[in-house]
Amino acid sequence: ATVHVKGVTYHFDNPEQAEKFAKRMAKELNGEVHVDGNTWHVD
């Protein structure tokens, strides 16, 4: 799974980790999470 945060890409072997990371980053950055298959975007 892949997480894109403000133009930076993070790779996770575990999709659950990717989801938790994306949601945590969105919270910290006051952003929104969008999911597209195995790819998470934090804007």
Rank of each mutant, 00 (worst) to 15 (best):
E16F: 09
G37P: 02
Y10T: 03
A26G: 06
T2V: 12
H41I: 15
V8F: 10
A26H: 02
V3H: 00
V8D: 07
E16D: 12
T9I: 15
G7V: 01
H41L: 12
K23Q: 13
H11S: 07
K20N: 12
V8R: 13
V33H: 04
E32N: 12
K20Y: 09
V33E: 03
A26L: 03
G7R: 04
H4P: 00
E19T: 03
G31V: 09
T2F: 14
W40M: 06
M25P: 00
V5L: 08
G31N: 03
P15L: 11
V35H: 13
E19A: 08
V35C: 07
E28G: 05
E19N: 04
F21K: 01
A1S: 11
K27H: 10
N38I: 05
A26K: 03
E28P: 01
A1F: 15
D36S: 13
T9L: 12
L29H: 05
E32H: 15
G31R: 05
H34W: 14
W40G: 02
K23W: 10
W40P: 02
F12A: 00
G7N: 07
W40K: 02
F21M: 03
D43V: 15
K27L: 13
T39K: 14
A22S: 03
N38Q: 07
A22D: 00
V5G: 02
M25C: 08
L29I: 10
A22C: 03
V3K: 00
H34G: 04
D36E: 13
A1V: 10
D36K: 11
N14A: 08
N30I: 04
K6N: 15
N38S: 07
V42P: 02
H34N: 05
E19P: 01
N30A: 07
M25S: 04
N14D: 14
H11E: 08
E28Q: 10
M25L: 09
T9R: 10
D13N: 10
E28L: 13
V35L: 12
H11A: 07
F21W: 05
Y10C: 05
V33D: 02
K20T: 09
K20R: 12
D43F: 15
G31W: 11
H11Q: 08
N30W: 05
K20S: 13
R24Q: 15
A22H: 00
T39I: 14
V33T: 07
H4F: 12
E32W: 14
P15S: 12
R24S: 12
H11F: 14
L29R: 03
E19Y: 06
A1P: 11
G31I: 05
V3E: 00
H11T: 09
V5M: 06
A26D: 01
E32P: 04
E28R: 10
A26C: 06
T2L: 11
T9F: 11
D36R: 09
G31F: 10
F12Y: 03
Q17Y: 07
H11L: 10
Y10A: 02
H4G: 03
F21I: 03
V8G: 05
N30M: 09
T2M: 11
N14K: 08
D43N: 10
Q17I: 09
R24A: 14
M25H: 03
T9G: 04
V33I: 13
D13I: 08
F12H: 01
D13K: 09
E32G: 07
T9H: 08
E32Y: 14
M25V: 09
V35N: 13
D13R: 07
G37K: 06
T9N: 07
D36V: 13
A18F: 01
N38H: 07
F21V: 04
D43Y: 15
H41G: 03
E16V: 11
V42D: 02
T39V: 15
E16C: 12
P15H: 12
Y10Q: 02
N30T: 05
K20L: 12
Y10W: 06
G37V: 03
K27Q: 12
H34Y: 13
D13M: 08
E32F: 14
E19D: 06
W40N: 02
H11P: 05
T2Y: 14
E16K: 10
D13W: 06
D43T: 15
G7C: 07
N14M: 07
V3D: 00
G37W: 02
A1N: 08
H11D: 05
T9V: 15
N38Y: 08
V42A: 02
G31C: 15
E16A: 12
W40Q: 02
T2P: 01
T9W: 14
V3L: 01
K6P: 03
F21Q: 02
F12K: 00
V8K: 13
Y10D: 00
F21R: 01
V42Q: 01
G7E: 05
K20I: 14
Q17H: 11
V35P: 04
H4N: 11
V3N: 00
H34M: 06
R24E: 14
V3T: 01
T2W: 14
A26T: 03
K27T: 09
A1T: 09
P15F: 11
V8C: 14
E19L: 06
G7T: 04
N14T: 14
M25W: 07
G37N: 06
T39N: 15
E32M: 14
A22Y: 01
V33F: 09
L29C: 07
G7M: 04
V3G: 00
H34L: 06
K6H: 12
F12W: 03
Y10M: 04
F12L: 02
H34T: 08
K23F: 10
T2E: 09
K20C: 06
G37C: 05
W40S: 03
T39F: 09
E19M: 07
E19H: 05
K23A: 09
V42Y: 01
A26Y: 01
A1W: 15
A18Y: 00
H34Q: 06
M25G: 00
F21H: 03
V33K: 02
D36I: 14
W40T: 03
A26Q: 04
K6L: 15
P15E: 08
M25T: 05
V33S: 05
K27N: 08
A18I: 00
G37T: 03
V8I: 13
K27D: 09
N30H: 10
K6D: 14
N14Q: 08
Y10N: 01
V8S: 07
N30C: 12
Q17A: 14
